[in-house]
């Protein structure tokens, strides 16, 4: 009995698996970070150099040498860091020296946090940081990568990897949905529908959100929407794991995050939608891809 539990535990967390799920996640996540970087790139001098209104995090907590590095840099240096960030992202996406690329990304992510993003501390940037750390040890470049092209002569060649990184990301996503959903059961501000119209007309509201609230719908409409959101979010962490239902929750997640992006302009959580692939069995994903690859995937 005891052995059986440990065997199952070990098998669930640490068995070997095809790398395709993590490779797809690597590419999707890299592309998403590239899109995010593209929104800041035109404004590098304003956002990340001493030519803009940039305020580094409390520098007195660092030794002098680090404090100097973390001060807002001149424009040329800010561009240099930005180029390094984009180059590392391209390496991540293509699977070229992936670990080196991720180390660079982690260092730059931390640097940008100290320099600028500590003023915009968001859940999604923390999730991105966590994902980078997991990818570092994932072997996600063991297929669909330049690495495999040089190693085995084919972009589609693959070597098995440990399933642990996939499990860590799926558990983290579950925990995020669990906290987000279940906290709304007791948070005083989420006990009525009022939270929705006010959220829609404050700083994050898009023109469509302002239009929606200006229709002056009765409060019971927002109460209903509030409860729909809460029920969905509370079920989400479980639904993602149930094979028969998970596609329904994937679709629900897409609608949910798309609505937030359209109405509240908080588009960063859309990265979770392609990441739902971590809830699928790596063997199933591999078999499906192989079936449709016309013999290219071995």
């Amino acid at each position: 009995m005891r052995n059986d539990f440990f065997t199952r535990w070990d098998f669930w967390w640490c068995r070997s698996a095809p790398p395709h799920v993590m490779a797809i996640l690597r590419i999707a996540f890299g592309l998403f970070l590239l899109i995010e970087a593209a929104t800041y790139l035109p404004f590098v001098p304003e956002m990340f150099s001493k030519e803009g209104l940039v305020m580094s995090m409390n520098l007195s907590q660092f030794p002098d040498m680090f404090a100097k590095i973390l001060k807002p840099p001149p424009v040329w240096a800010a561009w240099l860091f930005a180029c390094a960030y984009v180059a590392a992202l391209l390496m991540l996406i293509t699977g070229t020296f992936m670990r080196a690329a991720i180390v660079i990304l982690i260092l730059l992510f931390w640097y940008y946090w100290q320099l600028s993003f500590h003023l915009f501390p968001s859940s999604y940037h923390r999730l991105f940081f966590f994902t980078l750390w997991v990818l570092l040890f994932s072997g996600a470049d063991k297929t669909f990568s330049v690495r495999m092209f040089f190693k085995r002569g084919s972009f589609f060649a693959w070597d098995p990897i440990s399933i642990l990184p996939q499990r860590l990301i799926s558990i983290q996503m579950t925990a995020t949905y669990l906290g987000v959903g279940w906290q709304k059961l007791w948070l005083p501000t989420w006990q009525g529908g009022e939270v929705l119209p006010y959220s829609l007309i404050t700083r994050w509201g898009s023109p469509s959100a302002f239009w929606m609230v200006s229709q002056n719908w009765p409060m019971w409409v927002y109460d209903t929407m509030n409860w729909t959101v809460k029920v969905f979010e509370c079920l989400m962490p479980f639904g993602l794991w149930v094979p028969r239902l998970q596609w329904l929750f994937f679709a629900g997640g897409l609608v949910f995050h798309l609505s937030i992006a359209i109405l509240l302009e908080i588009w960063w959580f859309l990265v979770l939608v392609p990441a739902y692939i971590v809830f699928l069995s790596p063997e199933d994903v591999y078999n499906t891809l192989k079936r449709h690859s016309r013999g290219r995937i071995p």
Partner: peptide, 14 residues
């Protein structure tokens, strides 16, 4: 916790 619990409140002012 910061990854787990975003968007807890709202404001009636800007």
């Amino acid at each position: 916790y910061m990854m787990m619990a975003p968007y807890q409140s709202f404001a009636k002012f800007n």
